[in-house]
């Protein structure tokens, strides 16, 4: 019979041991890896750096079967609910408003972080002032034109200057995959608050938990102070 050293068992146990060590020391290894790769991530025309596991860069969590393509021409943002002047805005209308730019890290609640992302667009606060918020409004609800995704902020949160209705990202128009042509960017909160493919903004009497919040994530998603995480703040 094939006697001899039980090499198979040793390989197996060795891998389980390495796996356990990896779970314990993985976070430090991952930080080192991302520091190394971060400089190339945002400006990598080949996209190859995205193939390195946990190497950084954006990941794409699309929740519906497909998202319709909206061009600059046929895009519309509807603003309604408890406002004085309900509006339907085109890209050109947004471009005509006061522009705000931000350079902030993008932190996902699952752990990945993209450093120093350049964002541009209209500050949500400016947009709210333009349509006029009724005194009874307490929250702002966002819906995606993917047909499923929803988010919301309290009115106090929504008035911060670091929340954008973004039309530019990384120095160019927001691409479809990144949620373009128009997406929300909530700098101080985890990525799931930054509703992609923004289609509608509704002023309402109360905050309603959004898509991921129905699945257990925190509604007040401050980076470093929610979801049991202790990441460095982003804004």
């Amino acid at each position: 019979m094939s006697d001899g050293a039980p090499v198979g068992r040793r390989v197996l146990l060795g891998m389980v041991g390495l796996g356990a060590l990896g779970v314990v020391f993985g976070p430090s290894l991952q930080d080192a890896e991302q520091r190394l790769l971060a400089p190339v991530q945002n400006h990598d025309p080949t996209g190859l750096s995205g193939l390195v596991p946990d190497g950084g860069g954006f990941r794409f969590y699309s929740v519906t079967a497909s998202v319709p393509n909206r061009t600059v021409e046929d895009y519309r943002l509807t603003i309604g609910g408890l406002v004085d002047h309900p509006a339907t805005l085109r890209i050109a209308d947004l471009a005509a408003m006061r522009q705000t730019t931000l350079v902030r890290d993008f932190q996902c609640v699952t752990g990945w972080r993209v450093p120093k992302v350049h964002w541009s667009g209209v500050a949500l606060a400016d947009l709210l002032d333009a349509v006029g918020v009724k005194p009874s409004a307490k929250a702002v609800q966002f819906s995606s034109f993917d047909g499923a995704y929803t988010e919301s902020l309290s009115l106090a949160q929504a008035r911060r200057r670091d929340i954008l209705v973004a039309t530019g990202m990384l120095g160019q128009p927001v691409t479809h995959d990144h949620g373009g042509p128009v997406r929300l960017y909530v700098a101080p909160m985890y990525g799931y608050k930054s509703c992609k493919w923004l289609g509608g903004i509704t002023l309402a009497g109360q905050v309603t938990p959004g898509f991921w919040e129905d699945q257990g994530y925190d509604v007040d998603a401050w980076v470093g102070r929610s979801n049991g995480r202790d990441d460095a703040t982003t804004s």
Binding site: M15, V16, G19, G22, V23, V24, L29, Q30, D54, R229
Partner: peptide, 30 residues
């Protein structure tokens, strides 16, 4: 061995709230 490691780390990610956040990040990494 790899299947066992994937099962273990997958379990940590699936029931994420049962473990410290660092374990969750480490499990994702592995």
């Amino acid at each position: 061995g790899a299947t066992l490691v994937m099962l273990g780390t997958g379990l940590i990610m699936r029931f994420a709230n049962a473990w410290p956040v660092r374990w969750r990040t480490g499990a994702t990494f592995v």
